[in-house]
């Protein structure tokens, strides 16, 4: 059912290494990776500028903050829930963070503010979902509406500008590579390790796969769901920080369709929306792939009218490839 069970079927050490190769080659991550490389090379052969280092960095950077949010979304979805409010929360946390630093607070505190508040919002959602048993789609749909209205009520949409340079963490470029890319890579690795090698990580899969069974085996499913939403909140907070410092102005609005992008990245990355299956690496690769698709359509000069239709087709192709793979391997969804 999960990729973990596939692993257990290998016994001998030679078999294991062969199995490992097979496993890597047949994983959703590998498919996404191959698609990404194929896409980059194909477009690169049409327009050489696509392969320039600058553009490759742009491809990685474009959706980096969305990838960070998608890591949290993966956990939420694996645990059998969903979060429609990420866009609104990112919007409001970015505005708060910007206002805090404008008010003269040291920049590193302004960095921490969205992350701490994100965790608090996550705790609130988690409490409502896990302990008051309101479906997460209802909680986050309602919350999205509340935050959006509240933000407009308070700010009327005035842009924030004049943040100090040391606050603009997204614009730092250590070794010539923009900071969001480091965030994306490091956080993905940390989460991949947590999900795979810790009891907590496995308990999320268990709760998402079958909450009753998880409870019977001694897992406190409510606490796991609460923790998942808190962690998601932290990731949303980091994404908000990266979003806030990306440009020299912060718009006091909710980023349009952001939740759709994040959910798409998570599910294209191989997270089953039914819970219990999926990995975080796939989500990050999917976020990069979505941005690569977008810029490649510009590069090959496709009519802008048809761009969105092609995005839809390419998403579908990726998903179908994954399903085909699962079916061949006899892995159910």
């Amino acid at each position: 059912m999960t990729s973990v069970t596939v692993n257990q079927s290998n016994n001998g050490s030679t078999k294991r290494s062969a199995g490992l190769v097979r496993k890597i080659v047949s994983s959703q991550e590998f498919i996404l990776f191959v698609s990404l490389i194929a896409l980059i090379l194909t477009v690169g052969s049409i327009n050489g500028n696509y392969l320039r280092p600058n553009n490759l960095i742009s491809i990685l950077q474009g959706n980096a903050f969305a990838a960070v949010a998608a890591l949290g979304m993966c956990l939420v979805i694996i645990s059998g829930n969903i979060d429609i409010s990420v866009g609104s929360v990112v919007g409001v946390l970015a505005v708060i963070s910007g206002n805090v630093v404008i008010a003269g607070v040291p920049f590193w505190i302004a960095w921490l503010v969205p992350i701490v508040l994100g965790a608090l919002v996550g705790a609130l959602i988690g409490f409502l979902v896990a302990y008051l048993r309101i479906p997460s789609i209802v909680v986050t749909l309602g919350l999205a509406s509340i935050i959006k209205g509240g933000l407009i009520l308070v700010t009327s949409g005035r842009e924030i500008s004049g943040m100090p340079a040391e606050f603009m963490i997204s614009q730092f470029r250590p070794l010539g590579i923009p900071m969001p890319i480091y965030f994306m890579i490091v956080l993905t690795i940390i989460m991949a390790i947590i999900m795979r090698y810790t009891a907590f990580g496995r308990s999320i899969y268990a709760v998402g796969g079958n909450a009753d069974a998880a409870r019977l085996s001694g897992i406190n499913d409510r606490r796991v769901v609460l923790q998942v939403f808190i962690i998601n909140g932290i990731f949303v907070g980091i994404a908000a920080l990266l979003f806030a410092t990306q440009l020299q102005i912060i718009r006091a609005t909710v980023p349009a369709n952001f939740e759709l992008l994040v959910i798409t990245a998570a599910v294209v990355g191989g997270v089953s929306i039914l819970g219990g299956v999926g990995t975080v690496v796939g989500a990050t690769l999917a976020a990069i792939l979505l941005n690569a698709i977008n810029s490649s359509l510009v590069f090959v000069g496709i009519s802008p009218y048809w761009m969105r239709a092609f995005q839809g087709i390419l998403i579908l192709v990726t998903v179908l490839a994954d399903l085909l793979r699962r079916r061949r391997q006899g892995i159910g969804l």
């Binding site: 759709l260 959910i263 798409t264 599910v267 294209v268 089953s272 929306i273 039914l274 009519s303 009218y305 048809w306 761009m307 969105r308 239709a309 092609f310 995005q311 839809g312 087709i313 998403i315 579908l316 998903v319 179908l320 399903l323 079916r327 969804l333």
Partner: peptide, 27 residues
């Protein structure tokens, strides 16, 4: 038939159908 989860399928066709509307009408 292909057993695509409804959320993913309709997320993909959300982009596809909207894109077709844009493409066919040329806005």
């Amino acid at each position: 038939k292909i057993k695509v989860p409804p959320l993913i399928m309709t997320l993909a066709t959300l982009a596809l159908y909207r894109g077709m509307a844009e493409g066919i009408s040329q806005s």
